[in-house]
Amino acid sequence: MHPETHLLLHRSRTAELQAAAARPALPREHRLRIQLGWILVELGLRLTQQPPHRAARLA
């Protein structure tokens, strides 16, 4: 990669990170609500998956 392009990408990423750091943090209740929402999404996805097909075993 050309050095000037590489430097431009680094500067762009630095500006993005600084802008994100300048934003106020979410309140604790809001973070918990988001985390609970994602847990429920994961649980729903697990419930909709098909169980693995297991071959019958004869003893």
Rank of each mutant, 00 (worst) to 15 (best):
T5H: 14
L32F: 03
A19Y: 03
L47G: 02
R28G: 04
E16K: 12
E4G: 02
W38C: 07
L45E: 11
R33T: 07
A21L: 13
H53Q: 13
R33N: 09
L36H: 12
R23H: 08
P52E: 04
V41Y: 00
G37K: 02
A19L: 11
A22Q: 08
V41K: 00
V41F: 00
A15F: 06
H10F: 11
H10K: 15
G37E: 06
P27K: 00
R13K: 15
R54Q: 10
A21I: 04
A59L: 08
A59C: 06
A20E: 13
P52V: 01
A19M: 09
A55W: 03
E29G: 03
A19V: 04
L45Q: 10
R54G: 04
A25D: 10
Q18M: 10
G44Q: 02
A19E: 13
A20K: 09
I34P: 00
A59S: 11
L7A: 15
L26N: 08
V41D: 00
H6S: 14
A15L: 14
L9Q: 14
Q18W: 04
A22T: 03
A25P: 00
L40N: 05
H2L: 11
P24K: 01
I39D: 05
H10N: 14
I39M: 05
H10G: 13
Q49D: 08
T48P: 00
L40Q: 04
L43M: 06
L43W: 07
A19N: 10
L8F: 12
I34G: 02
L45N: 10
P3A: 06
I39S: 05
L8P: 02
L9M: 14
Q35V: 08
H10L: 15
R54M: 09
L36S: 12
R54F: 04
A19H: 05
P24W: 00
R31L: 10
A21Y: 04
A20V: 03
Q18N: 10
I34Q: 05
L43Q: 06
A56L: 12
L9F: 10
E4V: 09
V41N: 00
L9G: 13
R23V: 07
H10A: 15
L58C: 09
A22F: 02
L40T: 03
L36T: 12
L8W: 12
L26H: 07
P27E: 01
L45T: 08
L9Y: 11
I34E: 05
L45K: 04
W38I: 06
A22W: 02
Q18S: 08
W38R: 14
I34N: 02
A55H: 07
R33F: 03
L40E: 08
L9W: 08
G44H: 01
L26E: 13
Q35N: 08
Q35M: 09
L43V: 05
H6Q: 15
A25W: 01
E4Q: 13
I34H: 01
L17I: 10
Q49A: 10
H53A: 11
E16V: 13
P27I: 00
A25S: 12
L8S: 15
T14M: 11
Q50W: 07
L8H: 15
A20G: 07
P51D: 01
H2F: 11
P51G: 01
L17W: 08
E16I: 08
L17G: 09
A55T: 09
P24N: 02
L32D: 11
Q49S: 09
S12L: 13
H53K: 11
H53T: 12
H30K: 13
A19D: 13
I39P: 00
A55R: 11
T5D: 15
L9N: 14
W38M: 09
L36W: 06
R13A: 12
Q50G: 06
